[in-house]
Structures are given as structure tokens and as C-alpha cells.
Amino acid sequence: MLLRRELLAALGAAGALPAGAALAQGGTQGASWPTRPIQVVVPFPPGGQADVTARPVSAALERVFRQAMPVVNRPGAGGIVGTASVARAAPDGYTALMALSSHAMLPESERLQGRTPAYTVEQFAPIARFTADPTVLLVPAGSPWKTLADFVADAKRRPGVITYGSAGNYSTLHVAMAMLTGAANLDLLHVPFQGGGPALTALLSGTLDSLASGPGPASVHVKEGKLRALANWGSQRIPGFEDVPTFKELGYADVEFYIWTGLFLPVATPSEIQERLRQASLQVCETDEALKRALDTAGSPIAYLDGPAFVNFFNEDSARLVRAVQRIGKVD
């Protein structure tokens, strides 16, 4: 598939640089990196899954590099604006991207809309995957829906009335819900937001009826009794959400979806810098107890992958999600 060939070629091109060429490309930065703060761009507003992961990861990496790693939220167009800004950034190791599984879906959505993509996946080098969480279907605790069966039955009685939010058209949250509406033959009203954080805020305020969310941002609100989780998109029940069944358990065999978070650099970043960041990422995931506690508390335990394993996962997952975007088709 084209996506796989493009990504492997890009990773191979970056990894093929010999040490001398990498240092020549990065100048003294290759030998001494980092000598100044490293900006981590989250292409969504605060409060969503990428943001919840980026902040403790950046704090842990700061302890390794002894350099600041500020998280910069740069939302817009469902993640396209911030991601494209990293694609255009200098490949010097001082601008990184914390992306979601929508990373490969967004260029395909641009093509469906008849636009030239603002970025393509071959512009990025995958460094490390930190989390991989199935989404959960959330509704306000005060809603009449106690179970998924209640929700589905009401949606069938009132087609086009029950709303669901997302982080924008073709975002991870949109695709997850599209999988459900297709499998259950539901007509729900899609309300796109600038990111998962604002959509979750709308759900909490009662201005939105339902939302697919990563378990991290949702966990505290479910525990506090503000939201109710009806089902999850994973292959098994989620720690901390043990009483929430999977869609597969409830008879929807093809409804499976994960929100993962991964760190990327511009593909032309010297290979030595890529490897240093990759090794530091592995180090903090294995040894930094504060990072582990933060992600566990957020409901998104570490699910680390790097190198070829992350590339292979990215290719397989992205190919499936691109097909899902193509099934959604053009959104007016």
C-alpha cells in the first residue's frame, strides 16, 4: 500500500544517514543536542488525549535532557494546523509532534475534500508510541441511557436528534463514532469541535449528548459520577473501566478502535538526534515512576513501541483508519 511504502521509505532515508552525514546536516547540534528548549507541539486544545500524554512525557524527558520541553497547543482543522506546522519546522530536533492516530487520516480527508493535503506522513519520522487506548462511549450521568441498548433504541426512535461530538471532521473521535453508527445503523447528529478537550467540556455541560473519548480524559469524570461510560471500542475491558463492556461483547464485532499517542520529528532531522530522542523515550517509559503514575492516573497506561515495531504498528493501524475515512466519504 502507498502509505506503507511512503513511510518506510522516509524512515529508511532518515535512518540511512551515516553518523558523519547526520552531524554535517545538524552541525554541532548533532553532537551536543539538545542545547536549548525542545518544543512539543500538540495539534489540539488542552485537555484531550494528546495533551494529557504530552505533558507528563515532556516533563520526564526534561529530567533526562536537562532542557525545557514546553508543550505548545496549536489546534485547528481537527489537528491539521499544528501538524503541518511541525512538517514545515526546521529539522534540527527542536520541534517535535505529539500526534494521535488521526495522523494518517487527516491527509486522506483533505484529498476527499478535493484539497491538497497540508502535510503527508512521509514528512515525519516516527520516534515512539507512548499509549494506545480504546475509546469509550460517554454520555452525561443525568441522561436516560443506562446501557448501550438504551442509547441505540432511543437513537432509532429519534433519528438525527441525538448528538455526538468529535475533535473535528475525520478526527479519531469522528471515525470511532462513524464505525458505531454504521454497524448499528444509527442516524446521529455530528457536532465537530476544535479538539477532544472542548468536546468533553460540552458533554460535561450538557450541551452534547454523547462522545467517543480516550479513557484518560474521561476517567476522572466517570469516577466523580459526572459521566457514564456505556461501552468501549477495544478487544477487552479497560483497567479502571472493568464494568464497561466492549462493543464486541455487545454484538458489534467490527467496532474496534484505539487512540494512540506517538512522538514524531520532521523526517530530515539527523538520525543521531532521532536516536537520542528514541532512547530517552524508552528510558523514561522504563524507569520514570512519575511518568508511569501520571499516565496510570489518567487512565492511559504506557504501551510503548519504537523503531520498526512502531513503524509496523503505524502502517497497519493507519491503513485501516484510512479505509474508514474513505467509507465516510466527503463531508459537506
Results as ranks from 00 to 15, higher is better:
L97Q: 05
F124V: 10
L100A: 15
V86P: 05
V71D: 08
Y119A: 14
A99T: 02
G82A: 07
V71C: 02
V42D: 07
R63M: 00
T95V: 14
P70Y: 02
E108V: 12
P91I: 12
A14P: 00
T53K: 00
P75M: 08
P43R: 04
M69L: 15
A68W: 02
A99R: 04
R129Q: 15
T28R: 13
T95S: 15
V40M: 15
R66W: 01
R88K: 14
G76A: 05
I38T: 09
A14E: 07
I127K: 09
S102T: 15
R66Y: 03
P34F: 10
R63Q: 12
A60V: 03
E122A: 15
G26W: 00
A22H: 02
G26M: 03
A125T: 06
G114D: 09
R88E: 15
P75F: 06
A24S: 10
A59L: 08
G82C: 06
A125M: 14
A59N: 01
V64T: 04
F124I: 13
P18H: 00
M69Q: 05
L100Q: 09
T116L: 11
V41G: 05
E62C: 02
G114A: 03
A13G: 10
R36M: 14
Q29R: 09
E108M: 12
F65T: 00
A19W: 03
G20W: 06
L11V: 13
A96K: 03
A128T: 10
A14H: 04
G27W: 05
R55Q: 14
M105W: 12
A90D: 12
G79N: 04
R66D: 09
R129L: 14
R36H: 13
A84D: 08
G30N: 09
G93I: 06
L112Y: 09
P70F: 04
A59W: 03
N73I: 01
N73Q: 04
P37L: 06
T53H: 00
A118K: 15
V64G: 01
F44Q: 12
G47Q: 04
R63L: 02
S85I: 03
V52M: 10
F130L: 14
F65N: 01
R36V: 04
M69P: 03
G15M: 12
V72Y: 06
E122R: 15
V64L: 02
V81H: 05
A99H: 06
L112G: 12
G20T: 09
A99W: 06
P45Y: 04
D51H: 10
